[in-house]
């Protein structure tokens, strides 16, 4: 009787089937051993997961690496009372929004330009992308020199056309935005590249159909390229937000958070508190950064991925 039931079962489709036959004893034999995860799991948990969980506890302590004293939420209270630290918090948000916004807009425009029929396309693509691969510290030091208020090349060039350039990195009002500008200069190549990949993958037929229907350049861009490069936009937004919120190297190379603390971000606060030996406070900074990143990136990626493209 039993064998009859078995034979009457519809065979599972090939892709669902466990590839190898089940061995005797009810245990499935599979060539895809869980042991393959083991080294990855060990390294990842010990050096990433454990510190991440430990940070939640140690952010609530006064900590010297050897002993810790539980002080409740004092570190967080301090973080949001000290003007220097609050400034770091707001700067992080401003920096991330400004840089990722500019990367989306400029990246899309450059991608449309660099997929059109212009002379020197290969050269342009390379030259826009190359800064992505250059050392961030190197770029930071380079622009520190170029943005020098008296001798720098940028203000020199602006002077020629009659504009009195600001003290890019020395003026508290400008410092953060100047760094954001350099960050966009360095990172826009990646956004452009992602958009190019997105645009190139749009089927030609759509464009041809639109053209037959009499759509101009602007309309094809607005109705076809823009909606269909949405996955690229999602990637660019998420990547540059994560990068922007965590950004440290460029800020450290260019201003070290100065003048004063006007261009500090959470990451640079973490480093400064670490150097000063306030390990508990530094870790609290890490927890805040973690919360900020997840609170912004998770809902956003959920929202952006949820909406379907309707052409």
């Amino acid at each position: 009787m039993k064998s009859v039931t078995i034979t009457s079962i519809r065979p599972r489709s090939r892709s669902d089937a466990t590839p190898a036959a089940p061995a005797a004893g009810g245990k499935f034999y599979t060539p895809y051993s869980f042991w393959f995860y083991l080294p990855t799991a060990v390294i990842y948990s010990v050096l990433f997961l454990v510190p991440t969980f430990a940070s939640f506890y140690y952010s609530l302590t006064r900590w010297s690496l050897f002993e810790s004293k539980f002080i409740g939420l004092d570190n967080f209270v301090l973080f949001f009372q000290e003007p220097a630290l609050v400034k770091g918090f707001t700067n992080t948000l401003i920096f991330a929004v400004v840089t990722s916004g500019s990367k989306v807009v400029l990246g899309l425009l450059l991608a449309v330009l660099l997929t059109s029929r212009i002379v020197g396309r290969g050269y342009l693509r390379s030259v826009v992308f190359f800064p992505v691969l250059v050392s961030t510290i190197g770029v930071g030091l380079l622009f520190q020199v170029l943005m020098n208020p008296e001798q720098g090349l940028i203000n020199g060039a602006l002077g020629v056309i009659g504009i009195d350039g600001p003290g890019w990195l020395t003026d508290p009002k400008w410092a953060l935005m100047s760094i954001a500008l350099v960050d966009v200069w360095k990172g826009v190549g990646l956004a452009t590249l992602i958009y190019i990949a997105g645009i190139v993958s749009i089927p030609r037929e759509y464009m041809e159909a639109a053209r037959v229907d009499g759509a101009g350049s602007w309309e094809s861009f607005r109705r076809i390229v823009l909606p269909l490069s949405r996955p690229a936009t999602v990637t660019v937004v998420i990547l540059s937000l994560i990068g922007g919120l965590r950004s440290f190297e460029l800020i450290w190379a260019m201003t070290r958070g100065g003048p004063g603390f006007t261009s500090d971000v959470i990451s640079s606060v973490i480093y400064k508190q670490y150097q000063a030996g306030f390990y508990g406070l530094s870790t609290a900074g890490n927890v805040i950064l973690f919360l900020v990143v997840t609170a912004i990136v998770l809902p956003l990626s959920w929202f952006l991925n949820r909406k379907e493209v309707n052409l």
Binding site: Y37, Y44, V46, L47, F48, L49, V50, P51, T52, A54, S55, Y58, W63, L65, I242, L245, R246, S267, I270, Y271, Y274, Y279, S282, T283, N286, V287, L289, F290, V293, T294, V297, L298
Partner: peptide, 26 residues
């Protein structure tokens, strides 16, 4: 769960001082 861990690794900024603490223990 594993996919979730992989994505967390991309998003979560590593906690600096606790990592130093772990390294020191090791």
């Amino acid at each position: 769960f594993i996919n979730f861990l992989v994505l967390s690794g991309l998003i979560i900024p590593p906690a600096v001082v606790p990592t130093i603490w772990v390294l020191q223990k090791l």
